[in-house]
């Protein structure tokens, strides 16, 4: 009888190669959802495009005069770099929503019962959300281009800006992963993810220069990660002239990347820890 004996207890270890393979499997799984349910991607894109159109045509005229000359006199040129970061911030919320959906359906339990790398579910989730975010950002850029946006530096500045935005999106994805794992409930998480993002996006230089804000708000707005990341993008896409006196393009890029790394350093271990202890 084969049932009477067990193989001798050999110790199974998860290697880095396993971790990478598991992450690839999970990433593919999550991306397939976007491919099979294209309406998900459609709605994810409609919202940022709507923001783009509304802000450009509704506020553009009123704000147009206040923006730095580096924008070439067009509000759309000022708006697009800001919106790229806003889209990244809102898009990161999907990480929390996706995780809580998996939690509520028992999928996370199954994954946790498998001999897979403990970080693979989160790594795969954030990676697939990054790819998805990249798609949405590219689409929004295209619409921006169609309605008159032009970069004022070079295509490399433009691509560099997108890279900085994606880095920030990835870092925020881990914040959202931690929020999702802490909140756990798919309905509650919908509002939980917007709670930190909304004030950060509006009290920033995404839509308007911070110079017109009251001093106390400006002190906050100038030093929070969204404004700093937007500054880096504007520096890259519009040039030095888009920045305030005392700021340099390289300096703002460095600061923005530092913020992203700092957020990652805090929230990635936190999210992995929450994942390990999800049922305790």
């Amino acid at each position: 009888m084969t049932t009477t004996t067990h193989a001798p207890p050999e110790h199974v270890r998860i290697t880095l190669a396993h971790g990478i393979r598991d992450t690839a499997v999970i990433t593919r799984r999550n991306l397939l959802r976007n491919v099979r349910l294209p309406q998900l991607l459609l709605f994810a894109t409609v919202q940022p495009v709507m923001f783009l159109l509304l802000f450009n045509y509704v506020f553009g005229g009123a704000i147009g005069g206040e923006i730095p000359a580096a924008a070439g006199g067009k509000y759309i040129n000022w708006l697009v770099p800001g919106l790229l970061v806003q889209v990244a911030a809102f898009g990161a919320g999907q990480t929390a929503i996706g995780l809580t959906e998996d939690l509520s359906k028992g999928v996370i339990d199954r994954f946790r019962s498998l001999p897979m790398a403990r970080s693979a579910v989160l790594a795969g989730r954030t990676l697939s959300d990054l790819i998805r975010n990249g798609f949405v950002i590219t689409l929004m850029m295209t619409v921006g281009f169609l309605i008159g946006f032009r970069w004022q530096t070079s295509i490399f500045g433009m691509l560099g800006g997108m890279l900085v935005a994606m880095t920030f999106a990835y870092a925020l994805s881990w914040v959202m992963a931690a929020i999702g794992l802490a909140v756990k409930n798919p309905e509650a998480v919908q509002s939980a993810v917007f709670l930190p993002v909304f004030p950060l996006v509006f009290a920033s230089s995404v839509f308007v220069p911070t110079e017109t804000m009251p001093d106390w708000l400006r002190a906050f707005a100038d030093n929070q990660p969204i404004t700093i990341t937007v500054n880096a993008l504007r520096g890259l896409i519009l040039g030095q002239g888009a920045l305030q006196p005392g700021q340099t393009v390289a300096g703002e890029i460095g600061l923005a990347l530092l913020w992203s790394l700092g957020i990652l350093a805090v929230f990635a271990p936190l999210a992995v820890r929450l994942y390990r202890r999800i049922s305790d």
Binding site: P9, E10, H11, V12, R13, I14, K105, G106, V107, D109, R110, S113, L114, P115
Partner: peptide
């Protein structure tokens, strides 16, 4: 990890 290679789980909801 070793235990996980030897067990299978089907929870209350089809995951």
């Amino acid at each position: 990890t070793t235990a996980r290679t030897r067990l299978g789980l089907a929870g209350q909801f089809a995951a």
